[in-house]
Every structure is written in structure tokens, then in C-alpha cells.
Design a protein around this nucleic acid. Structure first.
Length: 479
RNA sequence: CGGGGUGUGGCACAGCUUGGUAGUGCGCUUGGUUCGGGACCAAGAGGCCGCUGGUUCGAGUCCAGUCACUCCGACCA
């Protein structure tokens, strides 16, 4: 089937060229189109529907915890961005800047937001006066722009969609708790909705967010052993509050600075889904975020009774799941291939033979296993099968994570593992950024992912310099 | 920003070396036969050959410039 006629629909094998495979999947599954603007993508209906599902689940979780959605301006005046020194140093180099409005040169340059800490702070300054005004738990769903040098759909685009939560608290303890609480929300989301296990932990000084005191991260592993920073949660202390002059009157009538957090996930999540669950037949979507959870394909649909039976099944399971009945004139085989490329978790075939038997055929996208299932109680069978897809995806991702995680006790071993296998390396670290730099240079790109919550004392000395070790670090290459 | 690659109907490409006014497959439209793993027949529609300039009687083809996209590095969610 790999003759030249089929080239249009072919997906490069993952093992042949992982990058090309990714691009092929993104295009064949109709997630994005390239646009006329450098580094910016068109998110097509099927891709956007995934994002809508992600947003729906997370938004509900945020609201359960008391967060409220707001909307901040797209533009940040230069003076505002400059108020927090580390922050501006981190972001200014990758900003798009507006200098002309209408026909007139602007007196102050406007930065297109790369993130909105400064805007939130300016607003919080106006509305926070008393401890009674705290906490403020705001979130924003929006687009941001970072002028990336090279771009890839979902993983790194000049403009992307995300959510950014920005909260203000009366005490440092409360803010720290919020930071970790939101990391838990992300962890749950990854595991329960995306079927992806994550490594959780704290970023090193070198890798943390510009302006943050502490940055926490959840990092899933891709098929090829690369990490993806899948979600971050930052504790800011009162640094921004001081820089922006945000004060409130405390319970003891003293003037105080509030403590701040921010946390976010972006459309990059979709890249993580593609790269960790996808296979050589295309996309594989976890049921919780799949725009179509079950595709119903009538076989020999022109024969009497087939479409009617298919419609009846669609109506039945459509009450509980996102279902599509494809009664287009394409051949069955074409449809099978099409929905596999698009990663629909479950396919339901129904044809004359099934109708006679009072059954249908369920096919899992992950295992591609076909099962004959009675039409009686079909919704429950579908529910179980979707759970099965989720569990299988989670298991495979966990196996990959485990198989591609190694320990290194000395530097020779570290370099050897980094050279031979793509994956995570657990190793002790002295806490010095120089060792991070050295490791990155010596390995050609292996960086600290995080200091995991689940630390183990593998040895007493830094894997790189041999001085006393402070922490275990998970190392790896990243997207 | 450094290095590589590619720009020709919607998509994937051929044509360029040796200039003569554009072709193949897929897709699309219409009609018919099909349908349990990418069906088939017939008739059609669709091209500023990325852009600009140059050489030439004549440029998809040669020359110069330019733009865009893409991949690999450094930076980042």
C-alpha cells in the first residue's frame, strides 16, 4: 500500500524521522494550517475542538476552587513591563512591539503581552486595599505573543493560546499553598484527562520563570524520550507587589504587601498529546478531550436498514458521548483510515451482518482490536471501551516513562546514558548553575527538568563536579 | 542569529542540465457501479510556475536580488 499513489495520505514513520512524523500528523489530522504570518498557525476546527475540551475541563476545575475569569488588555506599555527588573529582562527580547497607532507614532511603545503579570499587578493595585479584599483568584483565557526564532505547530508558535491564573494572597503560606494546589490541578488533568503521567517538581534557579521565587512544573515524556514543560505554577513572593506598590491594610492595621502566584498551560498541551500518544497511523486522542469519542461507520450503507440502524445507535450513545455518524459516500476502508489518522478513540462498525445478529463491532484506536458487541446496552459497552482506551494509553505512556528513565551515579555514566538513550536521567546535583551549564554543553542539550517532589538520595555527591549533593534532579532534553 | 532544504492547479511531485509558452498521481465536480481495511468506470473543471529585475525574438527553465515556508542548532510555554 506504500506505492506512490498513496503518498498524499502517508505519514512518515516515527522511527524514520520523529519531527517529520509530528508535522505529518498535525497536517493529516487536520489540526492546523500554516498561515501567512510567520510562526503563527491557523487552528482548524478539529484542533480547536480539542482545545475547547481542554479548556472546558480545566475551566470547570478552576471555578470549583473559586477562581474567576477576567480579561486583560492585549498591550502592555513599556513602562509597565519594566517595573519588575527580572521580568522585563526575561521577556523583552522576545516581544512584539507596537510603535504606531493609526497614522501616529506612539509616545510610548506598546508591547504585545507575552504574559500578563504586569497587567494584573497594575489592576490589583487599584482593587486591593484591605485583607478583606484577599485572596484575589483571577484567571484569564487569552492569546499571547512571543517572537520565537523557530516555530513548530502547537509546541512553539509566535502566538499561542493559554490560560494564565494570577492570584494574590494575604500570606506567603497561603500563596505557596495555592501554587502547589494548582500544580495538583494540572497533574490530575494530565493523568485523568490526558492519560499522561508526569514528573512533578521544582525548577532550578536557572530554569525558573523570570521574576518568580519558585517555579513548579509538570513534565510528561514524549514518545522519543524528550520532555515537554507541560504546565507551570509560580510562587512570586511579594516581589511584584513591591515593584508595583500593591499594598493592603492587614488585620493588625499595618501596611502589607500581598503574596502572589501565577500558573498556566497552553495549546502546547495539544503537542504533548500528539507526541506521547500518537503512532504511525496518526493521532491518538485520550477520550476525555477527543472531539469525536466514537465514530460510527455504517458498512454497506445503501442496503436497506443499515443507515436506520446506525442512526439509532448514534442517537442512543449520543446521549452520553460525543459521537459522529459518517454516512458520507466514501468507502469503508477510507473512513477507517481517516478516523484513525484523526485519532478517534473508538470506532463502531455496523453492517447487515451485525443487524442480523443484533450486534456491532467496536474497534479501539490504540490496540486496533475488533470486538463484536451486542447492541443491547451498547452505551455501557462504549463507556467501558472508552475507559479501556484511556487506561491503555496511560499504561503505555507510563511504560515509556519508566523504560526511558535511568539513574546516573557518576559523570561518565551520565554522559554515556545521555549519548545512548533519549529519556530522563536521575542524578544528584550540587545546586550550582555552572554544573547545569556544563552538563548542557557536554551533552548537547540535556537540561535540568526539575527537582522532583519524590527525591531519592542516589549518592552524596554531585554527578557533575563531585562536590556534596543538595538535590536529586531529573535531567532530559526538551521540546 | 548560524547551517541545510523547498517554493510549479487544493495536495505530493516531474519538467530546468541542453530556453520554444506546462504535465503526472491524488483530491475536486457530474453520472453510474460499489462498500466488513485507503473501490472502479466515464466525462469535466482548475495553473499570476513564490516575487522583482535582468539576458533573449522568446524564460517554469539561464543570471541577480528578494520574500516565504520548513528542518537542525542557540532561546523559550
Amino acid at each position: 500500500m506504500a506505492d506512490s499513489k498513496k503518498m498524499v495520505d502517508q505519514i512518515t514513520s516515527m522511527n524514520t524521522d520523529f519531527a517529520q512524523w509530528y508535522t505529518d500528523v498535525v497536517k493529516k489530522a487536520e489540526l492546523v494550517d500554516y498561515s501567512g504570518v510567520k510562526g503563527c498557525m491557523v487552528i482548524r476546527p478539529y484542533g480547536y475542538a480539542i482545545w475547547e475540551n481542554i479548556r472546558g475541563i480545566l475551566d470547570a476545575e478552576f471555578k470549583k476552587l473559586g477562581h474567576e475569569n477576567v480579561y486583560m488588555p492585549l498591550f502592555i506599555p513599556e513602562s509597565l513591563l519594566k517595573k519588575e527588573a527580572d521580568h522585563v529582562a526575561g521577556f523583552a527580547p522576545e516581544c512584539a512591539v507596537v510603535t504606531v497607532g493609526g497614522q501616529q507614532q506612539l509616545t510610548e511603545r506598546l508591547f504585545v503581552r507575552p504574559t500578563s503579570e504586569t497587567l494584573f499587578c497594575e489592576h490589583y493595585k487599584n482593587i486591593i486595599h484591605s485583607y478583606r479584599d484577599l485572596p484575589k483568584l483571577y484567571n484569564q483565557w487569552c492569546n499571547v505573543v512571543r517572537w520565537e526564532k523557530t516555530t513548530r505547530p502547537f509546541l512553539r508558535t509566535s502566538e499561542f493560546l493559554w490560560q494564565e491564573g494570577h492570584t494574590m494572597h494575604e500570606t506567603a503560606e497561603e500563596a505557596r499553598a495555592e501554587t502547589l494546589r494548582m500544580l495538583d490541578v494540572y497533574t490530575d488533568f494530565y493523568e485523568k484527562s490526558l492519560a499522561l503521567p508526569v514528573v512533578r517538581g521544582r525548577k532550578t534557579e536557572k530554569e525558573k520563570f523570570a521574576g518568580a521565587e519558585e517555579t513548579y512544573t509538570v513534565e510528561p515524556m514524549m514518545h522519543n524520550g524528550f520532555a515537554l514543560q507541560g504546565g507551570t505554577s509560580h510562587y512570586f513572593g511579594d516581589g511584584f507587589a513591591r515593584a508595583f506598590g500593591i499594598t493592603f491594610t492587614g488585620r493588625d492595621n499595618s501596611v502589607r504587601y500581598p503574596f502572589q502566584t501565577s500558573w498556566g498551560v497552553s495549546t502546547r498541551i495539544i503537542g504533548a498529546i500528539i507526541m506521547s500518544h500518537g503512532d504511525d497511523n496518526g493521532l491518538v486522542l485520550p477520550p476525555a478531550v477527543a472531539p469525536i469519542q466514537v465514530v460510527i461507520i455504517p458498512v454497506a450503507q445503501h442496503k436497506p436498514g443499515v443507515l436506520e440502524a446506525a442512526s439509532a445507535v448514534a442517537a442512543e450513545i449520543g446521549k452520553r458521548f460525543r459521537v459522529k455518524l459518517d454516512d458520507s459516500e466514501q468507502s469503508g476502508g477510507w473512513k477507517f483510515a481517516q478516523y484513525e489518522m484523526k485519532g478517534v478513540p473508538l470506532r463502531l462498525e455496523i453492517g447487515p451482518r451485525d443487524i442480523e445478529n443484533g450486534s456491532c463491532v467496536l474497534v479501539s484506536r490504540v490496540t486496533r482490536e475488533k470486538r463484536q458487541v451486542p447492541l443491547e446496552g451498547i452505551a455501557d459497552s462504549v463507556a467501558a471501551a472508552l475507559d479501556g482506551v484511556h487506561d491503555e494509553l496511560y499504561k503505555r505512556a507510563s511504560d515509556n516513562l519508566a523504560a526511558r528513565t535511568s539513574d546516573a551515579l557518576d559523570y561518565a555514566q551520565f554522559l554515556d546514558v545521555a549519548e545512548r538513550r533519549s529519556g530522563f536521567i536521575r542524578a544528584m546535583w550540587c545546586g550550582d548553575a555552572e554544573c547545569e551549564d556544563k552538563i548542557k554543553n557536554d551533552t548537547g542539550g540535556v537540561k535540568s527538568r526539575c527537582i522532583p517532589f519524590e527525591e531519592e538520595r542516589l549518592s552524596d555527591v554531585c554527578v557533575c563536579c563531585g562536590r556534596p549533593a543538595k538535590h536529586m534532579v531529573v535531567w532530559g532534553r526538551q521540546y
